[in-house]
Simulated assay, not measured.
Amino acid sequence: MDVSTPVSVFSAFSIIMIVVYGLFILLGIYALYLFIKLMIRGIAALDIYLDEKRNRML
């Protein structure tokens, strides 16, 4: 009689939660990447705006 080890519901749940946590970590890293790109563009736009204001006053 061959008895295989049963997979409990809690171990399957923990595996699913590890995958979900991993996906949230990757999503957070991607959101941080997009935020940094947005801030770089914002700083460049602010530099252009300030340069235009300074040159217009002269």
Rank of each mutant, 00 (worst) to 15 (best):
Y33P: 13
A44P: 01
A12G: 04
R56Q: 12
K37P: 08
S4I: 13
L34A: 10
M1V: 14
D51E: 14
L46D: 11
A12E: 10
L46C: 01
L46W: 05
I40Y: 04
Y33Q: 08
I48F: 07
A31H: 03
M57K: 13
M39R: 15
I36A: 04
L38C: 09
S8V: 03
A44T: 10
R54P: 05
D2N: 13
S14Y: 03
M57G: 10
D47M: 04
N55K: 07
M57Q: 15
S4F: 13
S8D: 03
M39P: 06
E52A: 09
I25L: 00
V3N: 06
N55I: 08
Y21G: 13
E52Q: 08
R56H: 12
M1E: 14
I43E: 05
G22N: 00
L26I: 05
R56D: 15
L38S: 12
P6C: 06
S14W: 05
F35P: 02
V7Y: 04
M39D: 13
N55M: 11
L26K: 06
D47A: 01
Y33E: 06
I18V: 14
Y30E: 10
N55Q: 14
D51K: 09
F10H: 07
S11I: 10
I36H: 12
Y30K: 05
I18D: 12
V3S: 06
L58E: 03
Y30H: 08
I25E: 01
R41W: 06
K37I: 14
I48G: 09
V9G: 01
V3Y: 05
S14K: 11
I15Y: 14
Y33V: 13
E52V: 07
R41G: 12
I43K: 11
M57L: 14
P6K: 03
M39G: 08
E52T: 09
F35D: 15
I29P: 00
L23D: 15
L58S: 02
Y49L: 09
D47S: 03
F13L: 09
V7A: 01
I36W: 14
F13I: 06
I25T: 05
R54H: 11
L46S: 07
L50P: 02
S11D: 06
L26E: 05
F24I: 07
Y21F: 13
E52R: 05
F24N: 04
L32R: 07
I40K: 05
K53A: 02
P6F: 09
L58N: 01
M1I: 14
L34W: 12
L38I: 11
L27T: 07
I48L: 12
F35K: 15
D51S: 12
S4L: 13
L34P: 07
R54Y: 09
I29H: 03
L38G: 12
L58G: 06
K37W: 07
I40H: 08
I18L: 13
A44L: 10
T5S: 02
I16R: 13
V20N: 15
A45E: 14
L32M: 07
A44H: 11
T5G: 09
V7T: 00
F13P: 01
G22Y: 00
S14F: 09
L50A: 02
I43N: 04
F13Y: 11
V20Y: 10
E52W: 05
A12F: 00
I15D: 13
Y33D: 11
A45G: 08
I18S: 11
I36F: 10
